[in-house]
């Protein structure tokens, strides 16, 4: 009988983490950042149908990077979780924290018990009545959760791009300013000296959680609306 080689738990976890991290880094990044009237999401995504950013519930949205089939599955699970909760209690009882926990448990369990970890990284964001009550959770492939303030950049080259956002982001930015910053970060290359790549509006997937909207706060910005927001002097 063959004896399997001994692999230390540290090595096993490290291999899995490396595997997941590599998968995630291959994808395009997603930028999530707070602005005065809500939370904005942007990513480079030429597809009009396969979304990386979507609505979960009235005030909650979801953004993901990594393998499409894996995060799509998690997104549908999130919509079911939120709708079931809202149906059995009340719409106001659905919150991002509960959903982030459910995702974290799921990702964590898969990471430790299954042969392949999920190659995804998620953001669950909830817009509150005031900017101070906005919630942004970042959930990693191993199930760890971080409560983020202000902005999140995840996916390929997230360190460099995160740096671009960190340098310029400030609380209370207007939506056009926040989105222009997000697009600049998405176009940033590894080399800090290089000019950022210019990304056309048709290549962008942009959505916002707008706290001024009455019930469902989620709105996609496409076509002319997006172009006018991204214009240098657009307000």
């Amino acid at each position: 009988m063959n004896m399997p080689f001994y692999v230390s738990p540290e090595q096993l976890m490290k291999d899995r983490a490396d595997f997941a991290r590599k998968g995630i880094a291959r994808g395009r990044s997603v930028v999530v950042l707070a602005y005065d009237d809500g939370i904005a999401f942007a990513t480079q995504n030429p597809s009009r149908a396969l979304h990386k950013i979507s609505e979960i519930y009235d005030r909650i949205a979801f953004a993901a990077v990594g393998k499409y089939n894996e995060f799509e599955n998690l997104r549908v699970a999130g919509v079911r979780y939120a709708d079931l909760r809202g149906y059995s209690y009340d719409r106001s009882d659905v919150n991002a924290r509960g959903l982030a926990n459910a995702y974290a448990q799921t990702l964590g369990t898969v990471f430790t018990t299954e042969s392949k970890p999920l190659e995804v990284e998620l953001v669950v964001a909830e817009v509150g009545p005031t900017p101070a009550r906005d919630q942004v959770y970042r959930i990693s492939y191993d199930g760890s959760v971080a409560d983020e303030q202000g902005f999140v950049v995840m996916g390929g080259q997230s360190e460099r791009r995160g740096q671009v956002v960190a340098e310029a982001w400030e609380p209370g930015m207007s939506l056009p300013a926040a989105l222009r910053l997000a697009v600049r970060a998405l176009g940033a290359s590894e080399d800090p000296e290089a000019e950022p790549e210019d990304i056309d509006a048709s290549q962008l997937e942009v959505a916002v959680l707008d706290r001024t909207r009455p019930r469902r706060a989620f709105r996609r910005l496409t076509g002319g609306v997006l172009e006018s927001v991204l214009e240098p002097d657009g307000e």
Binding site: N73, L74, V76, A77, R80, Y81, A102, Y103, Q105, T106, G108, T109, V110, T113
Partner: peptide
């Protein structure tokens, strides 16, 4: 279903 994670019904496509 494993304890903690979302039940299979949630992730069934």
């Amino acid at each position: 279903d494993l304890p903690g994670r979302l039940p299979d019904a949630f992730t069934t496509p």
